[in-house]
């Protein structure tokens, strides 16, 4: 019996968690206060099965084809893709900077790993984001507990494996507390090789 708002259809393959897609777009000249961020972010759909995911995903624009300053977010249902959300408050994220042209493929691989529960870190994963920017695109994966080093290392190592990253790829971690403090997602990160 499915007690959630969205349930897998008959004969479909259920996901471990329901996931919600969000989309946001910002005019770079405007300050990114948390209020304007919340106003700019839109929930676009929730999926409960592998088949529902593909039906939804196939209708979305590929992130690499988006222009300007925009983001796709895929988060567990009930978790807002905001630093202030209860599930994110003590968390942080791994960041991978991509040169232009790679975002669509890497985004698909990271979300397939998340939907398929490849990270093996219990309830720790909150969601994933692809951020389209002018010079580069950025992939991030958010987890609940930023000071749990065993978890964050495992997420980093899984990312390397599922994205097939070269061993010398620079990985950066930033706690949401630090993001809140300097009001920036991707500045002043901690570099890990």
């Amino acid at each position: 019996v499915c007690l959630q708002t969205v349930c897998p259809g008959a004969g479909e393959h259920p996901l471990q968690y329901n996931y919600t897609f969000w989309y946001s777009r910002r005019t770079p000249s405007r300050p990114a206060s948390s209020q304007s961020y919340e106003q700019n972010i839109r929930q676009i759909g929730t999926v409960a099965s592998v088949e529902q995911f593909w039906r939804f995903y196939s209708h979305l624009v590929r992130p690499g084809d988006l222009s300007g300053h925009s983001d796709f977010h895929l988060f567990k249902e009930g978790i807002k893709p905001m630093w202030e959300d209860e599930s994110n408050r003590s968390g942080g994220k791994w960041i991978i900077r991509l040169r232009k042209g790679l975002a669509s493929r890497f985004w698909e691989n990271i979300i397939l790993a998340m939907l398929g529960e490849q990270f093996m870190v219990g309830e720790e994963i909150c969601g994933a984001v692809v951020s389209i920017r002018f010079q580069e695109d950025i992939l991030s994966i958010w987890n609940r507990t930023s000071n749990d080093q065993m978890t964050t290392s495992r997420i980093r190592d899984t990312l390397r494996r599922v994205l097939n990253l070269p061993t010398n790829t620079i990985m950066e971690y930033k706690t949401h507390n630090d993001s809140l403090r300097d009001n920036s997602s991707f500045r002043n990160t901690k570099i890990s090789l």
Binding site: E51, W54, G116
Partner: peptide, 21 residues
């Protein structure tokens, strides 16, 4: 409880062969 784990290959196969009801 049991975790529902899918590898990339399986997920991609589900894309090309959707469930028929």
């Amino acid at each position: 409880g049991t975790r529902i784990i899918y590898d990339r290959k399986f997920l991609l196969e589900c894309r090309s062969s959707p469930v028929t009801k």
